[in-house]
Amino acid sequence: VGEWSCVRCTFLNPAGQRQCSICEAPR
Rank of each mutant, 00 (worst) to 15 (best):
G16E: 10
Q19A: 01
C20T: 01
E3A: 01
G2S: 07
I22H: 15
Q19T: 07
R18E: 09
A25E: 10
R18I: 10
R27C: 11
Q17R: 03
C9N: 01
E24A: 12
V1G: 05
R8G: 07
C20K: 03
C23Q: 02
P26R: 11
A25M: 03
R18Q: 12
P26L: 06
T10I: 08
A25T: 07
G16D: 11
S21E: 04
E3W: 07
I22D: 14
S21D: 03
G16H: 00
R27N: 07
Q19P: 03
G2M: 15
A15Q: 02
C20G: 00
A15K: 09
C6D: 04
P14D: 14
I22E: 14
V1S: 10
S5Y: 06
C20E: 00
R18C: 05
P26G: 08
R18M: 15
G2A: 10
A15Y: 08
S21M: 04
V1Y: 15
P14L: 05
A15T: 13
P14G: 08
S5W: 04
C20S: 00
S21I: 01
C6I: 00
E3R: 01
S21Y: 13
L12E: 12
R27L: 10
V1F: 13
S21P: 14
A15D: 11
F11K: 13
E24K: 09
I22Q: 14
S5Q: 13
V1A: 05
Q19F: 07
V1T: 03
S5P: 06
T10W: 10
E3D: 09
Q17T: 09
G2Y: 13
R27K: 12
C23G: 02
C23H: 05
C20P: 01
E24T: 15
I22G: 15
Q19H: 01
C23E: 02
S5F: 04
S21H: 11
S5T: 10
I22C: 14
G2D: 12
A15L: 12
E24V: 09
P26E: 11
L12F: 06
Q19G: 04
L12T: 12
E3K: 02
V1I: 15
G2R: 12
Q19W: 04
C23V: 01
I22F: 10
P26M: 06
G16P: 12
A15H: 00
G2W: 01
S5A: 06
E3F: 13
G2T: 15
P26K: 11
P26N: 07
R18S: 13
A15I: 03
I22W: 09
C20Q: 00
E24F: 11
I22T: 13
Q19E: 04
R27M: 11
E3Y: 13
G2K: 13
R18A: 11
I22Y: 11
G16L: 07
E24M: 13
R18W: 06
G16K: 07
C6E: 01
C6Y: 07
S5R: 09
C23M: 03
Q17S: 11
G16I: 09
E3G: 02
R18G: 08
V1E: 11
R27T: 09
V1R: 05
A15S: 11
L12I: 03
R18Y: 02
C23K: 00
C20L: 00
A25P: 11
W4R: 09
W4A: 07
C20V: 00
G16F: 04
E3T: 06
W4P: 15
C23P: 02
A25G: 11
S5N: 11
G16M: 14
V1D: 04
S21L: 08
P26W: 06
P14V: 04
Q17E: 09
A15G: 08
Q19R: 02
S21C: 04
C6R: 01
A25F: 01
F11S: 15
S5G: 06
P14Q: 10
Q17D: 15
E24D: 12
Q17W: 08
W4L: 09
E3L: 02
C20D: 00
W4C: 08
W4Y: 15
P26S: 07
Q19V: 02
E24W: 06
A15R: 09
W4S: 13
G2L: 03
G2E: 15
C23D: 00
P14S: 12
P26T: 10
E3C: 07
C6T: 00
C20R: 00
W4E: 14
P26D: 08
R27H: 13
E3N: 10
N13K: 03
P26F: 10
P26C: 06
P26H: 13
V1L: 07
G2H: 08
